[in-house]
Design a protein around this nucleic acid. Structure first.
Length: 1052
RNA sequence: GGGGCACUAGCUCAGGUGGUUAGAGCGCACCCCUGAUAAGGGUGAGGUCGCUAGUUCGAGUCUAGCGUGCCCCA
């Protein structure tokens, strides 16, 4: 027999049991090791230096559902975890922990010790991540995770960087960054965003005398007077009008001034590398504020830098990295740039160059780690990847990717590629992949290296410093060999060449790390060449939308640059872009706001499956979703419990099949053709659902698949089980009972497999009980039993043409619509379902519908509690007909005359038209252009119940109820009332389902008549072995519609 | 400032290729069932589909503009 299943279930404790079972039986390993065609998945590496939240849970369960699905479909699905370990966020965490700030402080603390601290920090929350990952049922191999700081991984990146370098794609140039002068470091945009505050800055309008136009000056506006000594150019908007006032009253377009030269306000030094002090045109010039002319200092502004570079102008940077003016700025040498603003203005005034001065209140960024330190925009030399050279290839590659949602391709991602700028790769930091470029300190010759082995060829003693350190401290990780500070000790000389090769000081952007994972996770090309070729490109990746410019970009860009011979797309074919999870107000989850519930708490309260199902049902790719506890609670209640109830119902009655003989899978299963319509219907619905779910999952739209499953479960529970209930304890028709058990069993087994990728715990629990190895082997299906130790090793349900029956599905849908309409009639007429009625009359528009309905006449009669169901021959008596054009058909044919046609049909006597249509097959409408003959397929018939009948219409069908209650019907109603009362007594006394009873009743008149007449059926219904009239002192007294009744129930 | 996405019932959300009665769940109201029972079910109310123009015989759906919100970037 099946293990008993209680309808009261605790999903969280179920999870625990299943997790233990998986662990014990090594189910994940068995799934992972199965043979089959590969389905390649790449895990986007998270950083485990913070607590995971529901957003991380979402990406994990979305990965899991497609991977489990593919496994069940027979693919071999590698599931390797990964960790992103480098980067500024890690360094900042450590700085906070150590209570230090800035580069100097880190150098003082010691780069070696600092790097070690970074490693510790990266894995600080790895325990929480593991726990969350395991708890939610995300199967991924955490023990064999790739880690971006590992030596092998770094060497793969070096290989990639060397290739880029050798192809001329890696170059050095200036980049304007937000610079924290006091800390000696650039800040990331995230950090800059945290440090804005409102301040008053001077705002000055400065005169720039025009060369060759005596007495004329350009006026330009700036809020950073300290950048004026470094002025290189002025920018105009080419198509705006510029006025020359006082002397000449004329206007010229900005373009007319382009090329004009002027005298810069200061001449401490000359810009280098090109001409300067002339007017150029730039698109970013705005007319909203200032004079329409913009002062450009390329050393201190991103736009300035780009515009001047594009014009081939020179460069001048008269502020030192520590924020002070250099000696050549004689008036202000050694002073902090921003603090000199006032004196600069004073000097301008003295020179007669100040036109106007104001105070400007705006938001300005400061160092979030010391809010008194203003940031400045500052050009630093940086290493770049020349992505712009190959961007067309990336764009072509992008076109071949299947994005879900599709608008990402030409929207967010496509637009981003279109506006591509070269990738600023280097970081002046400590904890990152070192840039593998060495420069000869005499000749300036540059060399990139692709591995540690390559270095050793140049200098066998290159890593001696590291080995010495390791000898002193054996705990030193081998991986740190390729990191700062040791890598900076690596030098070499080349025979016959003067000078020593020393590494550049920079490390690289950690996005480059994660973007290399397709090959770096395998150590390619130094290791695993074959394995790499087998797992490239990925079939599927998914992350949240914030990765568009992050991981998705770095993956694609790097792959495009390195693997130019590979056919597009690569390195991923399908990419599901998830929306962000937000709180109830629509705000992004954030650590600082603490606006989310710990996902582990939700799992502990409602179970992993509830969290998973809530995420599948409530999120759509690309769309932000408000996610809160309520959704999880609903998922448990609305879906999981419904499934569980059906399952529990089945198991309960299977175990009560016959006295001491439960129903088991060994029982004979009637052939499909021998089963009832109802059985074949539910199997047809299942088949339909299976087809659709496969389609949706193949197309990476899990949210649609989930809808299909939800509506199937609803149909199963609300129609199949409800309509079939009594078949499961029937005693008469053994064949039908067998069919019912066989059908529900088959449905539940397949359902458990169908939902397994989504709700792996509940699925496993159901499947384990329904298809237990013991049960299967007793049923003579030993092979299956061994293979299916887990639902996740079982095959995903497949379409079955034998079960398919769309006509049957339509019929039942029709019958259910009629029941809905009939229920509405009863509701409106205040006629309880308990009171039988004589007749339901159905009006339909076609004979096909009539046949379809007659097939389910029994069900409809029972649901509506009517004695007979009939089809009227005089529809006009009950309904009005209305004819409407069939718009999709007639639209193209009639065009502009369609509204008139609709109007004429509406004004005509619909019932007459309908009669004509039924008789002759056509009707004729006279339009201005002439008479038009319309056939049935060009028209739609609408029925409306006439006033005065208990009737309701539903989707073009009308149900009329005969509300006359005859004495006979009334007695039937009374009998049902009594049945209901006796059932209640059974329930109140908590009698077992199959307990037989003896009923003694006491009533007079009409009620007594009813009980004599319907006694046998009541007795059968309530499992009474005797149902007799008689007085009993202990009888329960009540009244039925005014008549007194005494009922006594005793165990037989 | 640039790019992207969204705006549909009180709430959370669905609504291929335009087709004239716009759907679901929750919540709410009324009711039923009592052999899935600390469950289950029925019916109903509730929407000028953000606004304004346009294209079209016909627009929630296409186009343009505007508004609001969010995300990414500056």
């Amino acid at each position: 027999m099946f293990a008993p299943v209680s309808p009261q279930v605790s999903f969280p404790s179920l999870d625990a049991k299943i997790l233990a079972q998986w662990e014990e039986q090594k189910i994940f390993q068995r799934v992972a090791e199965r043979e089959g065609p590969p389905f390649v998945f790449y895990e986007g590496p998270p950083t485990a230096n913070g607590m995971p939240h529901a957003g991380h849970v979402l990406t994990r369960v979305m990965k899991d559902v497609f991977l489990r699905y593919r496994s069940m479909c027979g693919y071999r699905v590698p599931r390797r975890a990964g960790w992103d370990t480098h980067g500024l966020p890690v360094e900042v965490e450590v700085e906070k922990e150590l209570g230090i700030n800035g580069r100097a402080a880190i150098a003082e603390y010691g780069v070696e010790a600092f790097s070690k601290k970074c490693i510790d920090s990266v894995f600080r929350y790895i325990g929480e991540w593991r726990k969350m990952t395991n708890r939610i049922g995300f199967w991924v191999d955490l023990d064999d995770a790739y880690v971006t700081f590992h030596k092998r991984y770094v060497e793969s990146e070096w290989w990639a960087l060397k290739r880029l370098f050798d192809e001329g794609l890696l170059y050095q140039d200036y980049k304007v960054v937000w610079w924290w002068a006091q800390g000696g470091t650039a800040l990331s945009s995230g950090e800059v965003g945290q440090g804005y505050k409102e301040v008053d800055d001077p705002s000055v309008m400065v005169r720039f005398p025009v060369k060759g136009h005596e007495g004329t000056s350009f006026l330009a506006w700036t809020t950073t007077p300290w950048t004026l000594p470094s002025n290189v150019a002025l920018a105009v908007k080419a198509d705006a009008s510029y006025a020359t006032v006082k002397l000449e009253d004329e206007t010229k377009p900005g373009s007319a001034w382009v090329g004009a030269e002027y005298v810069a306000p200061f001449d401490y030094a000359k810009p280098e590398g090109g001409p300067a002090h002339r007017v150029i045109a730039a698109a970013f010039v705005e007319l909203g504020s200032g004079s329409g002319m913009v002062h450009l200092a390329p050393a201190f502004g991103e736009d300035d830098f780009r515009a001047c570079k594009a014009e081939g102008l020179g460069f001048l940077q008269l502020v030192q990295p520590d924020g002070t003016f250099p000696p050549e700025v004689t008036d202000f040498a050694g002073r902090f740039c921003k603090e000199a603003d006032r004196d600069i203005i004073r000097l301008l005034k003295k020179k007669g160059l100040l036109f106007k001065e104001e105070v400007y209140r705006h938001e300005y960024p400061f160092s979030w780690r010391r809010m008194s330190d203003p940031l400045i925009q500052y050009a630093r030399t940086s290493w770049f990847i020349k992505t712009t050279r190959e961007i067309h290839r990336a764009q072509e590659n992008n076109q071949a990717v299947n994005w879900e949602p599709s608008h990402i391709k030409d929207g967010r991602f496509g637009q981003f590629l279109a506006g591509n700028v070269d990738w600023a790769l280097s970081r002046e930091r400590f904890w990152g992949t070192p840039l593998p470029i060495w420069i000869n300190d005499v000749t300036g010759k540059r060399v990139a290296v692709g591995s540690a082995a390559e270095i050793l060829e140049k200098n066998p003693n290159a890593f001696d410093h590291f080995h010495a350190a390791k000898a002193k401290d054996p705990s030193l990780a081998e991986d740190l060999m390729v990191h700062k500070p040791w890598i900076d000790e690596v030098t070499w000389t080349v025979p016959g060449e003067e000078g020593v090769y020393r590494r550049v000081p920079e490390v690289i952007d950690c996005w480059f790390d994660s973007g290399c994972m397709p090959f770096a996770q395998l150590g390619y090309p130094h290791h695993n060449k074959e394995e790499f070729e087998k797992t490239f490109p990925a079939d599927f990746i998914t992350e949240a939308v914030d990765q568009t410019r992050g991981w998705f970009y770095s993956l694609m860009m790097i792959s495009t640059l390195l693997f130019e011979k590979e056919g597009y797309p690569h390195p991923f074919r399908n990419c599901v872009v998830l929306g962000l999870l937000t709180d109830e107000k629509g705000l992004k989850y954030s650590k600082s706001l603490k606006n989310y519930t710990d996902p582990l708490k939700l799992m502990d309260d409602f179970g992993g499956d509830a969290v998973r199902w809530a995420l599948y049902t409530n999120t759509v790719p690309g769309q932000n979703t408000r996610f809160f506890e309520g959704a999880v609670r609903d998922a448990a209640r609305e879906f999981l419990l419904k499934v569980w109830n059906v399952y529990s119902f089945f198991v309960t009655y299977a175990n009560l099949y016959e006295k001491d003989a439960p129903w088991t899978p060994e029982h004979a299963r009637p052939a499909l053709a021998e089963r009832s319509d109802l059985d074949r219907w539910v199997l047809a619905e299942l088949d339909f659902t299976v087809r659709k779910v496969r389609e949706e999952l193949d197309g990476y739209t899990a949210h649609q698949a989930v809808k299909r499953i939800t509506s199937f479960v609803d149909a199963l529970s609300n129609w199949y089980v409800r309509r079939s209930r009594s078949r499961f304890w029937a005693e008469g028709d053994a064949a039908d009972k067998q069919a019912a058990f066989a059908t529900l069993y088959e449905v539940l087994v397949e359902l458990s497999r169908l939902v397994a990728p989504f709700v792996p715990f509940v699925a496993e629990a159901m499947h384990g009980n329904l298809c237990s190895p013991e049960g299967l082997s007793r049923a003579g299906r030993l092979a299956e039993a061994t293979a299916h130790a887990s639902v996740h090793l079982a095959p995903f349900p497949a379409a079955d043409d034998a079960r398919r029956d769309d006509a049957l599905r339509e019929s039942v849908a029709l019958a259910r619509q009629l029941v809905t309409a009939g229920n509405r009639v009863r509701n409106e007429a205040k006629l309880k379902v308990r009171q039988p009625l004589g007749e339901a009359i159905v009006v339909v528009a076609s004979d096909d519908e009539r046949a379809a309905i007659e097939r389910f006449s029994d069900a409809i009669r029972e649901e509506l509690n009517v004695v007979s169901l009939s089809f009227t021959t005089e529809p006009a008596k009950y309904v009005d007909f209305q004819l409407l054009p069939n718009f999709p058909k007639l639209g193209p044919r009639l065009g502009k005359e369609l509204p008139l046609c609709k109007k004429l049909l509406g004004e005509a006597d619909g019932s007459k038209l309908h009669a004509e249509l039924s008789a002759s097959g056509t009707i004729t409408v006279t339009l201005p252009s002439g008479p038009v003959v319309l056939g049935p397929e060009e028209l739609q018939v609408r029925l409306q119940a006439k006033e005065g009948f208990a009737a309701a219409s539903e989707a073009g069908r009308v149900v009329v109820l005969d509300t006359h209650v005859t004495p006979e019907l009334r007695k039937m109603g009374l009998a049902r009332e009594v049945t209901s009362k006796i059932q209640r007594v059974r329930k109140d006394r908590d009698l077992p389902y199959d307990a037989r009873i003896v009923v003694t009743w006491d009533a007079e008149g009409e009620l007594a008549e009813a009980l004599f007449e319907h006694g046998p059926s009541i007795a059968a219904e309530v499992l009474a072995v005797r149902f007799e009239r008689g007085a009993n002192a202990n009888a329960e007294r009540s009244d039925v519609d005014g008549a007194p009744l005494g009922v006594h129930v005793a165990l037989a």
